[in-house]
């Protein structure tokens, strides 16, 4: 595995009076009773994360689960109470204000839920804003901004003001602004939650298209599990300040770590998530003839074929070797049980 771009260990964020002292008093691991007793709030509790280069890590949880606070700790928009955050190997929590400004100016970009555009600036000046505060001259920053604006499909709207744009367009501006400095790490805090469902879908596609071009390291926050499944390489599920499970979507569904994760993943159409390999049984004798399926196909894609067969269907791996068999019963289980 490559060196993680962001690594955080034992991260805590406690709200309330004297948070550091509170943590120390309870041996750096207060229980929920301890929190209740003094009225402190453990927004983030003992979070451990590694973000690999080029991956999309989705942090998912309901409102109040601490997902926004985690991402703000990683960029130090919020000062963590305890723990360690390594950003490309350097200790972010020891960085001076000056160093932080430099890191944010060149290595981080962030997209916000409600777009957070500056209302008094045109589209191009909003996008060029991070370059402007660095002191990049006008012609240069406008060239760069126009480039990104074209990339996100807003060419021709450079002179518009945010209030003249639709929500989806405004978020395209937000995305452009966050990419203006060509950051290494891209934080997206519920970027599509404020948009209509149809636009949301369109923006997710747009996001995937951009990522195919740019290959950023991404931390993406959402409360929408469908969105997480569509976009994520790995998903971290948060509950009451803790990361309860970190893994691929398939792992979350097949091997939920807690009841909470199980309940969360229950309503998910598994056919679109599970591969043949995770469901199939051992290979059976004499399966030479008849149709075959590949082990990395999704159940949903092969269901029609398997259900039409009386006998189990043979499963081949990419090299064409027989690795297992898939019965009608197994497919029906995936399609019609809710995973409980």
């Amino acid at each position: 595995m490559a060196e993680p771009v962001i690594l955080c260990r034992g991260l805590w964020k406690v709200f309330g009076p004297e948070p550091a002292e509170f943590l120390a008093r309870h041996g750096s691991n207060p229980s929920s009773e301890d929190f209740q007793e003094t009225g402190h709030i453990g927004a983030v509790q003992d979070a451990n994360l590694d973000v690999q280069p080029g991956e999309i890590l989705v942090i998912m949880g309901l409102s109040g689960s601490g997902k926004s606070t985690v991402v703000r700790c990683l960029s130090r928009l919020v000062e963590p109470t305890a723990g360690q955050v390594l950003f490309q190997g350097t200790d972010l929590l020891k960085a001076t204000d000056k160093e932080l400004i430099e890191i944010r100016r060149h290595k981080m970009g962030m997209v916000f839920q409600n777009f957070a555009l500056l209302p008094h600036r045109t589209v191009i000046d909003n996008v060029a804003f991070p370059l402007e505060v660095q002191g990049v001259d006008r012609a240069k920053r406008h060239d760069r901004a126009s480039e990104i604006i074209e990339l996100v499909g807003l060419k021709g709207r450079e002179g518009y003001y945010p209030r003249e744009l639709s929500g989806g367009q405004q978020q395209r501006v937000g995305i452009s602004r966050s990419l203006a400095v060509e950051p290494d790490v891209w934080f997206l805090d519920e970027p599509f939650s404020a948009l209509d469902p149809l636009i949301r879908r369109e923006m997710q596609d747009e996001f995937l298209r951009l990522q195919n071009l740019l290959h950023k390291t991404i931390i993406f926050i959402t409360h929408d599990f469908d969105e997480a499944i569509r976009l994520a390489d790995r998903i971290a599920i948060m509950y009451e300040g803790r990361i309860v499970q970190l893994g691929t979507a398939e792992e979350l569904v097949t091997k939920p770590a807690t009841d909470y994760v199980r309940a969360f993943t229950r309503g998910i159409p598994k056919a679109k998530l599970l591969t043949v390999a995770s469901v199939m049984g051992p290979p059976e004798e004499g399966q030479g003839d008849g149709p075959t399926v590949k082990d990395d196909q999704l159940i949903g894609d092969v269901a029609g074929l398997v259900i039409g067969q009386d006998k189990p269907v043979a499963v081949m791996d990419t090299s064409g070797t027989l690795v297992g068999s898939l019965t009608r019963g197994q497919v029906v289980d995936v399609l019609f049980t809710d995973g409980s």
Partner: peptide
């Protein structure tokens, strides 16, 4: 709004830039 301020910080504004280019114009 808190988000607009955060956007300013993430863009790498110094405290002076935060005041004159983000806070005051946004509060106009």
């Amino acid at each position: 709004s808190e988000e607009v301020l955060e956007a300013g910080v993430m863009a790498g504004c110094t405290s002076q830039q935060m005041l004159w280019r983000v806070r005051i114009p946004a509060a106009r």
